[in-house]
């Protein structure tokens, strides 16, 4: 390949690896927020309180219909006007976690709806509380059918972390940009970013499938 400089490649690799770690932390933390908050949003839409259900439904729709980068800007730049001053990392995690929680809530909703109606009736016939019904019976069964969707969004959140570079989070894209403008060479850093993303995303999809099979087996549901 013409004009590809291997010495430069080796030189910038350690810095990019460090940034990869940051990217993974950002994706992981954002995902953790999304997994928990998504469940809250999904369950809130199933309560008998109409107003709450309606509001949550609209919030989810709003988040899903607006760009992630706008939400990142909002948390980081508009937040301070309301006295909420957060550093780029925290803002980024909140924005990306919030964004993906909306998507995950839809995945959970589908999973919960896929559980047979008879399971709810069995819980009622044992006089189980709503809480036990959800956490001991319904959610464990909603999990396996949700895992594929959850896995897709795990890869999705990972690929969306470069958006955080716009507010200065030192993840992979941000670091590649910095290296490029310091050295006036963009080919190697950007190519490496692509290779690193590919190297992580591809096996992740396979691992998720393996994990899904393991969970089904663990729950005795083949």
């Amino acid at each position: 390949m013409f004009d590809w400089r291997w010495d430069f490649t080796w030189e910038i690799l350690p810095r990019l690896f460090e940034a990869t770690l940051n990217t993974m932390i950002a994706a992981g933390a954002g995902y953790a927020i999304a997994v928990v908050l998504g469940l809250v949003l999904a369950l809130a839409q199933r309560t008998p309180w109409r107003v709450l259900t309606f509001v949550v439904r609209e919030v989810v729709e709003f988040i899903r219909s607006t760009p992630l980068v706008l939400q990142i800007f909002f948390v980081f730049f508009v937040g301070p006007q309301f006295g909420i001053r957060l550093d780029p990392w925290t803002s980024g995690m909140i924005a990306i976690g919030l964004h993906y929680s909306a998507y995950l809530s839809e995945v959970y909703r589908g999973g919960i709806e896929s559980v047979a109606k008879g399971q709810w009736e069995a819980c009622a016939s044992l006089s189980m509380s709503t809480r036990d019904t959800y956490f001991r019976i319904i959610i464990p069964q909603a999990l396996p059918p949700s895992l594929a969707g959850m896995g897709n969004y795990l890869v999705g959140i990972f690929k969306d972390t470069p958006m955080l570079s716009v507010i200065g989070v030192a993840e992979l894209m941000h670091t590649a940009n910095a290296i490029g403008s310091e050295n006036y060479r963009f080919l190697e850093p950007y190519t490496l970013v692509g290779v690193i993303f590919l190297a992580i995303s591809l096996p992740a999809a396979g691992l998720i499938r393996v994990f899904e099979g393991w969970v089904r087996k663990k729950l005795g549901m083949q």
Partner: peptide, 30 residues
């Protein structure tokens, strides 16, 4: 409704629990 028990046409056992766990769930949790 606690004094009432019910069996269904399609059984409705909890698929993620063993037979024993199915029978313990109500007594332990409820």
């Amino acid at each position: 409704r606690e004094p009432i028990g019910m069996c269904f046409q399609h059984f409705n056992l909890f698929p993620h629990m063993t037979a024993l766990q199915n029978c313990m769930e109500g007594p332990v949790q409820v």
